[in-house]
Design a binder for these strands. Structure first.
Lengths: 241, 241
DNA sequence: CGACGCGTTGATGAGATTCAACATGTGTGG
DNA sequence: CCACACATGTTGAATCTCATCAACGCGTCG
C-alpha cells in the first residue's frame, strides 16, 4: 500500500538534508551528522488518507517527515478517537512507542507525504556510540512531552476561542520556521480534525472561524487562512503581544 | 527551605531500593543497577506545599520520588495554571526539562516528601556508557508522553463524569502497584487540584463525588475514598470491565 | 448532472461554570 | 482544651458555553 523507496547512493542524506535543523541531526557536528546517513536506508511514500503505522504495530522504526503532513490518533475501545498531534516536515513521529516497543498511536497522512525510515535497532545502537545523537533523542522526546503538556493546558484551562487562536498561532510559527509565510497558509486538516484535536465539534470550529473573520482578525477561504491581526490573535490566545 | 540530606554510606541505595521496579533501575541487571548507586549522592526533603523546583529553573537534576506525592504545574502569563500530573513514589519528575536544560514545569509537594537527586550531568555521561540505562530513560520519557496523550484523550473527548472515573481508576492502579489497597485510599490532593487537573471546577468535582456516592459506586469521607463497585466505575470510564 | 464530502449557519438543549450560602475540618492562640 | 479563624468541601440557583440536531450552500469528481 505504502511505497517503499530504497535510497540510491546519490540521494539526499541526513547530512545534506535541509530539514536537519528540525530533525534528528539538530545540533550535531558535521561528522556526527554524517554517521546519521547510514541510519536511513529507505523512505516511504504515504498517500493522503493512508496510515503509516497503526496503534499496536510492532515498533520497528520511527519516521522523520521529509515532506507532507501527518496526524497521530489515539483510539478508544468505544470507537471514539482523539488526534494528539499534527506533524510537519522535519518532525519525528513514532517516539511515543519507545516504552512498549509497539506504536502507541496511529499515524495518518493528511496529504501525500514521504518519510525517512529510521530503524530503532540501528538508532539505539548508534545512540550508544554517539552521545550527541543520544542527547538529541532526549531533546526530541522531551520536546514532545512539553508539547503535549501545552495541549493539556489548552484543553484543560482554555475556552474554545482561545484554543483555536493558540492552534493557529502555533501552526503559523511552525510554518514560518520552515520558510513559509506566517500569515497566509493552507490548512491540511478539516474542521472536524481541528475540532477533534481541540476538544470541540466541527460546528463550533466553523463558527469560531466565522467570528474571528467578522472581528477582522483573519480571513478564510475554504482551508486557506490569512491572519490579518497577529497581535489581536495573540491577545485572544492569552499570549504576550 | 528544602532540606538536603547527603547520603551516608550505609543508606539505602538504588540497588537495594524497593522502588526499583518503578524508578530508574527498572529492567536492569544487578551489576548495572549497582552503577546507579554512584549517581545518587543526596536526597531532598520537601515539606508539604513547598516547591522542589520552579518553571525556568536551570535543570541541574531530575528527581526520583522516595516517598510522598508531588504535583507538576504549568503557569501561564495571565496567572492561570494547569496541573499536568500527580506523581507517586518511584516516579521521576523533571524529565520534561531535558529539551531546554531548564525546568518546563513547577513541582510542588502535596505532602511531606523526599526525593533522590539525580544530577543530569552524571546521568548523561553514565547513560553514554550504560545502554540499559539509556533504554530505561527513553522508556520513562516515552511513558510520560503516553500518559500525557491519555490525558489529552481524557480532556478532549470525555465528559466530566468519565474523567473523574478515569482519574480514580488510574490512581487506584498506581497505588495497587505499590502495594496499597486498590479500593480504599486517601487523596493527597484537594477537590480544586483534581478539578484543575481534569479541566473542571472544584464544585463540579464535588458534585460528581456526591453523584457517584449516591449511585453506590464509591463512598467518600473527606479525602478518603472507598471504591465499592470497580466494574461500575470502569463502565463509566469507558474501559473494559 | 447528481452524489458526496465538507463547511456554514440557525434553533434548541444539556452539561458545566459561576455566584452564593452554608457545613465541616483543621490549626492556632488564648 | 476550647474558641475562633480560615481552608476546604457541599449544595442550590442562575447563567453561559458549547454540543446536538437540522437545513442548506458550495465545490469536486465520477
Amino acid at each position: 500500500m505504502n511505497k517503499r523507496i530504497p535510497l540510491a547512493s546519490d540521494s539526499v542524506r541526513c547530512s545534506t538534508c535541509g530539514l536537519g535543523q528540525f530533525c534528528l541531526p539538530v545540533g550535531m557536528e558535521a561528522d556526527d551528522a554524517g554517521r546519521m546517513d547510514e541510519l536511513v536506508q529507505e523512505r516511504i511514500r504515504v498517500a493522503k488518507g493512508q496510515a503509516l503505522f497503526h496503534v499496536g504495530d510492532g515498533l520497528e522504526a520511527v519516521y522523520g517527515i521529509r515532506f507532507g503532513t501527518l496526524k497521530t490518533v489515539l483510539e478508544r475501545a468505544d470507537g471514539r478517537q482523539q488526534i494528539t498531534g499534527f506533524h510537519l516536515a522535519g518532525e519525528i513521529v513514532g517516539l511515543d512507542g519507545l516504552a512498549r516497543t509497539a506504536h502507541a498511536s496511529t499515524a495518518v497522512a493528511l496529504e501525500d507525504s514521504e518519510v525517512c525510515v529510521i530503524p530503532v535497532r540501528d538508532l539505539s545502537s548508534l545512540a550508544g556510540h554517539l552521545p550527541s545523537l543520544q542527547r538529541q533523542l532526549m531533546r526530541l522526546m522531551s520536546r514532545e512531552i512539553e508539547h503535549d503538556q501545552q495541549m493539556l493546558l489548552s484543553l484543560g484551562a482554555m475556552r474554545a476561542e482561545e484554543r483555536l487562536a493558540v492552534f493557529l498561532l502555533n501552526l503559523s510559527e511552525r510554518l514560518a520556521a520552515r520558510g513559509y509565510s506566517a500569515s497566509t497558509f493552507v490548512l491540511r486538516m478539516s474542521r472536524e480534525e481541528i475540532g477533534n484535536f481541540l476538544g470541540l465539534t466541527l460546528e463550533t470550529v466553523s463558527r469560531l472561524f466565522s467570528r474571528l473573520s467578522r472581528a477582522q482578525l483573519l480571513r478564510t477561504r475554504q482551508r486557506e487562512v490569512e491572519i490579518l491581526d497577529m497581535a489581536g490573535l495573540r491577545r485572544i490566545a492569552g499570549l504576550p503581544c
